[in-house]
């Protein structure tokens, strides 16, 4: 069971820890991989935004958002990702996307979000991109 009294960073330091049915986090050095477990639609996007905000408040500024389990992202879902990106950019951080299905990638392309989000085919390449940044 997750102890709500403990900080999210403590919980994440245990390696892989389920935060909710919507998001799972996994720490890789200074990068946190956030796997989204369900579609980012009007109902779930606010929750996703709050969870991402919580992770960032805990001190994480480099995030890889794994969308491989997501079939649909609407504008509110994009808003959650944009909000996370805007929170980490001033600290030199970034939010990178990986595993997006073609239909989800299309949403990023049509809205031109590809201008601000770097999209990678899988986790490994997304994590590697942060290593090359150093």
């Amino acid at each position: 069971m997750v102890d709500p009294e403990r900080g999210i960073m403590d919980r994440m330091s245990e390696g892989k820890q389920k935060e909710s049915g919507l998001i799972t986090t996994e720490k890789h050095d200074e990068v946190t991989v956030v796997a989204v477990g369900a579609d980012l639609d009007a109902h779930r996007s606010q929750k996703a935004k709050d969870l991402l905000g919580e992770i960032i408040k805990g001190g994480t500024v480099r995030l890889v958002v794994d969308l491989s389990s997501v079939a649909f992202v609407d504008s509110a879902g994009l808003g959650a990702l944009v909000s996370a990106l805007k929170s980490v950019r001033p600290s030199g951080g970034d939010v990178r996307i990986c595993g997006a299905r073609p239909e989800v990638t299309t949403v990023f392309e049509l809205t031109r979000m590809t201008k601000i989000f770097r999209i990678f085919p899988d986790r490994e390449s997304a994590l590697a991109s942060f290593r090359t940044d150093r």
Binding site: T111, R112, M113
Partner: peptide, 23 residues
């Protein structure tokens, strides 16, 4: 960043104008 407008040309074909900028 908006879905591309669909244009019906005088010949009846349909063209799309995709976004070039962020929202």
């Amino acid at each position: 960043g908006h879905p591309p407008p669909m244009v019906i040309t005088p010949t009846g074909s349909i063209e799309m104008v995709t976004a070039s900028s962020l929202p």
